[in-house]
Design a protein around this nucleic acid. Structure first.
Lengths: 238, 238
DNA sequence: TGGTCCAAACTGGTCTGGCCAATTTCCATA
DNA sequence: TATGGAAATTGGCCAGACCAGTTTGGACCA
């Protein structure tokens, strides 16, 4: 038996790879229009169906966007297109309920450390905006889900590390899919909402003052509080 | 103009969603075989081509595996299937060359902290194995790429946090695609290889002794060394 | 009875050709 | 020059066919 050749290469996979290469090496820039399926098929010497399957695959990878009647366009590949499948994969593997929050703690404390060193005026402005948003939400009894997430995201953005930012995007996607229900219950507790808002202020101050250690500590404390509260909620649940 | 309805739902996307649901809710378990394309088409009342495009999409998302002549099988969705597209997306957004290493530092220091608290005998054994592998590689002048990666990965695995492990997988994929060339040059320097092996030992000892702070520090120091060396290499390059 | 081997049935991969609906193009008309 | 609408173009979907592997079910042999 021939163990080297595992699976014969499928034709449409070749097409995928060819187009993919053109995109990654910049020959095809975001916004560019691909040749029509029929011409592409002729040019590559394959049938239209093979081309279609290739395009379908590229669409599901977030590399293309297809408008019926118009054409296929190269898309600015954004991580959001992969969040859903990524989240479902990671969710299946989770065995401890607090893995996500713990991972956030690891990532956000590190990001805060960097943010305190690198935050620029625009970053501080953004942080302050979301800080105020959340305070308003608390005062007016609104849901703080959105403003809370936004603030945490801003902290990571202020680290100016795109890799950390992308990883945070993944974690936020995970949060939404995993903690959706219990989070709703958590934020109904006004006492905790207020404590959170206060802790956010501390974080903001630490970053503004350019104090990495303090930024790290306040973020760590903040997420500790969160984890403890989630744990308490879970305890009353079952 | 109607802004609410952006794009009409494509038929094959419906099929994707239906099958996807069956997989995530467990009706279709990994290893299960799907109905043949022709039957699936008949059952869903669509053409075979629509089914094929749906299956193509699911394959590229890593949810299915198709064997020609045999059938389509539900796959244990692994993050590796999404690493390539994920890496290319994140690579495009990177503006500082050391973003990846910095992100690794954030993630691995946190993971080491947890590992020192949670590592079990099997984890320590695995760590020790890769430690020895690398020492052997160094002594015999072999490439240390593999054994080095494996050790770092083991540290994160010892944290027993599946989310961190998955994020580490992403980062390692990024490393391979980004630092491939210069890393090759780096490990040619025997002096650094030996220093690395020594630092790995320190990390191992800290985890073994259940000393979270020390584990964090040694990992931080280790990656600092790495970043500095990469920086030096880059300086001599251009 | 038990194992072997081969043909038939099945399955995915690809192709051809066709129709529809939405979009774009372009020209005749106001 | 602007505009309205027909024609061409494009992607979405379908039907039917053939091929190359895989699986299956017996028929045949030991």
């Amino acid at each position: 038996m021939d163990l080297t050749r595992k699976k014969r290469t499928r034709l449409y996979e070749d097409v995928v790879e060819q187009i993919r290469k053109l995109i990654v090496d910049g020959t095809l820039a975001p916004g560019d229009q691909l040749l029509p399926e029929r011409q592409l098929a002729e040019k590559l010497g394959v049938s239209r169906s093979a081309v279609r399957e290739a395009l379908t695959s590229l669409v599901s990878l977030g590399l293309l966007e297809i408008t019926p009647g118009s054409g296929a366009y190269v898309k600015e590949a954004k991580i959001n297109d992969l969040i859903d499948p990524l989240a479902s994969i990671m969710l299946k593997e989770i065995n401890d309920v607090f893995d996500i929050l713990e991972a956030r703690q690891v990532l956000e404390t590190g990001a805060a450390h960097l943010a305190a060193q690198r935050a620029e005026r625009t970053d501080l402005y953004e942080l302050h905006e979301f800080l105020r948003d959340m305070e308003n939400d608390v005062n007016e009894g609104r849901d703080t889900d959105e403003s809370d997430s936004q603030f945490h995201f801003s902290v990571v953005r202020a680290s100016h590390n795109t890799v950390l930012i992308n990883l945070m995007t993944v974690l936020m996607g995970l949060m939404k899919e995993y903690y959706g229900p219990s989070r709703k219950r958590l934020v109904e507790n006004r006492q905790y909402r207020e404590m959170w808002a206060l802790q956010h202020t501390e974080i903001y101050e630490a970053i503004k003052n350019g104090d990495p250690e303090n930024a790290t500590d306040t973020v760590a404390k903040h997420l500790d509080t969160t984890i403890k509260e989630f744990r308490r909620l879970q305890g009353t649940d079952e």
